[in-house]
């Protein structure tokens, strides 16, 4: 694959004795959207969390293999995990703004990274909110509490918060599953725009969302990567029968 951003080599993950990811090898292209699909428990979210070492927080997890981001194995002992998470942002299923003002939510990351200049912070907040397609809605109420926003707005605010620390990669775990169709469509449109600058990996149960938003789709099943290909191919002519059975709803 040309222009690889992330290369995964023979990655396995164990929760204690149970192997949740089995020898995953794949490449994720730069500045494209890659969707991870598969039934519940197939390992797609576990895999997503491997990309910014979120699984480190779970005791009993053991990981083997390599996760190369820009050629550097992020599981290498010498790698600073905080730095990784700065470069690899994450948006979760349930929007989780801080109980602070809209402005503070976005400025929080840059501030803890040492940026204290008000003009600079103002600029970051505006750019991030613009990129998250929510500036026009919020520009006159930046001091209001983020908790008063609608679910869709909160989710876009969380995306703005992720963008504020200038990541390279954005991981999205079911980012629109709790949103109404209009907010969902805004998030999907946003994903489309953000890929110009970021590499995006999105986990979704909504297959049509994967089809609409992604350039590449990976199908996981029982901890294995069954197939990764161009989304157009996966949804019109998948190579593997298991993929065909899953996307056509004839699974199990």
């Amino acid at each position: 694959m040309k222009n690889t951003k992330i290369e995964v080599k023979d990655l396995s993950l164990y929760y204690g004795e149970k192997q949740a990811l089995k020898n995953i090898s794949l490449e994720i292209p730069r500045n494209k959207v890659t969707a991870l699909i598969g039934p519940s428990g197939c390992g797609k979210s576990t895999f997503l969390r491997c990309i910014n070492r979120m699984n480190d927080l779970i005791p009993s997890v053991k990981i083997t293999g390599e996760m190369l981001v820009e050629g550097i194995d992020i599981y290498d002992k010498n790698v600073d995990v905080v730095n990784i998470r700065k470069k690899i942002g994450m948006v979760f299923q349930k929007s989780n703004p801080f109980p602070k003002s809209i402005y503070e939510n976005v400025a929080y990351g840059p501030k803890i990274n040492g940026i204290n200049n008000k003009t600079e912070l103002d600029e970051i907040v505006e750019t991030s909110l613009r990129q998250a397609a929510i500036w026009d809605e919020l520009k006159d109420r930046l001091d209001d509490s983020a908790m008063g926003l609608s679910g869709g707005q909160q989710q876009r605010l969380c995306i703005a918060r992720t963008l504020a620390v200038s990541p390279d990669i954005i991981l999205m775990d079911e980012p629109a599953s709790a949103l109404d169709p209009i907010s969902t469509s805004k998030i999907e449109e946003l994903v489309h725009e953000l890929k110009e600058q970021y590499t995006i990996i999105i986990v979704t149960h909504n297959m049509q969302q994967a089809a609409r938003t992604s350039d590449y789709t990976a199908f996981f099943y029982l901890g294995e990567l069954i197939e990764l290909g161009k989304t157009n191919t996966i949804f019109t002519k998948p190579e593997q029968k298991q993929t065909e059975d899953y996307i056509t709803g004839r699974f199990g």
Partner: peptide, 9 residues
């Protein structure tokens, strides 16, 4: 139903 793959064809 939003058919895909062989169903769509």
């Amino acid at each position: 139903q939003q058919p895909v793959a062989s169903d769509l064809r």
